[in-house]
Amino acid sequence: MGVSSALSMAATVSQTKALDLTTVADPLMFRRAVQLTDGTTAGKADKVFHDRRTLAASATEDLDLAGALLDVFGAVINLVRVKGLFISAAAANANNVIVGNATSNGWATLLNATGTLTLRPGASVGVMAGQADATGYAVAAGTGDVLKVANSGAGSAVTYDIVIVGASA
């Protein structure tokens, strides 16, 4: 089974200002992209996890990046490096989706031990390692491999989409 990935993020912004005799424009096209081929070294990834998940009101879940997640074919994924992580909270959520700050064996490479990201309804976040980066975001099985995801409040469930692209070595 081979993995080929195109990870990207983009922002296109245009602002204008009317002056006395002209209108000036500032078009911005910010784009970053990484093409990953199958493998485990720089510019490569060999594992993918993606899912749409729902958390009950006030619930949390721990996503074990090293040995508990299953790929679409039902095989266990054991990540050693994360090359791309994308999370999107459903727009219909009433509560926020909180990512990070696992109490045990937390994956601290991206957010440190206690850091969190708050995804308001409809918000998305993505991070990707550079093309030449062989390390990416390291995962330490048994000591630093748990990504916590939480529903910020009571009253209603939250839904989120997650995509993780990484390497097994």
Rank of each mutant, 00 (worst) to 15 (best):
S88N: 07
A94C: 00
A113H: 09
Q131D: 14
R81M: 07
N96P: 00
F73G: 10
S104A: 13
T118Y: 04
D133P: 11
S88E: 13
V80S: 14
V80R: 11
I87A: 05
V99G: 06
D133V: 15
G130P: 07
M128S: 10
T114P: 08
N112Y: 01
I98Q: 05
R120D: 06
I77W: 01
I77K: 11
G130V: 13
A91S: 13
N95Q: 15
A108P: 04
A102G: 03
G126M: 12
S104Q: 13
K83C: 01
V125R: 14
G122R: 07
A89S: 08
A102Y: 05
A90L: 08
L117Q: 15
V99K: 02
K83M: 07
L119A: 04
K83V: 03
G130E: 15
T118N: 11
L70V: 02
N112D: 10
A94K: 05
F73R: 09
N105Q: 10
L69Q: 13
A102W: 02
A91G: 12
N96F: 00
A108E: 05
N96Q: 03
T114M: 01
G84T: 01
G126T: 12
S104W: 04
L119Y: 04
G130M: 12
D71E: 05
A113T: 15
W107N: 11
G100I: 09
V76M: 06
V82T: 12
I77E: 13
N112F: 04
L119V: 07
I87R: 08
V80T: 10
V97W: 00
G126C: 08
Q131A: 14
D133T: 15
G67N: 03
V127M: 10
N105D: 06
N96E: 04
A108H: 03
S88W: 00
R81P: 05
A123V: 07
V76A: 11
A113G: 08
M128P: 07
A91I: 09
L70S: 10
A92E: 15
I77A: 11
L117F: 08
N112W: 01
T114D: 12
A75M: 07
G106W: 03
A92L: 13
R81F: 07
M128F: 14
R120P: 03
V125P: 12
G130R: 11
L85Y: 02
N93C: 07
A68L: 02
A123T: 10
V72I: 10
A92V: 14
F86R: 14
L85G: 01
P121M: 08
L69N: 13
T118Q: 12
V127T: 15
V82S: 06
A102N: 01
G126K: 11
V80A: 13
A68G: 02
I77V: 05
L117V: 15
I77G: 09
R120N: 11
L110K: 05
P121V: 05
W107Y: 06
S104M: 03
L110S: 03
F73C: 02
K83I: 01
T103H: 02
L85C: 00
T114L: 09
L117M: 15
L69V: 02
A89F: 00
V76G: 03
G115F: 00
N105M: 01
L69M: 08
F86H: 11
F73Q: 11
A132E: 15
N95A: 09
A68D: 12
V99L: 08
L117D: 13
G84H: 05
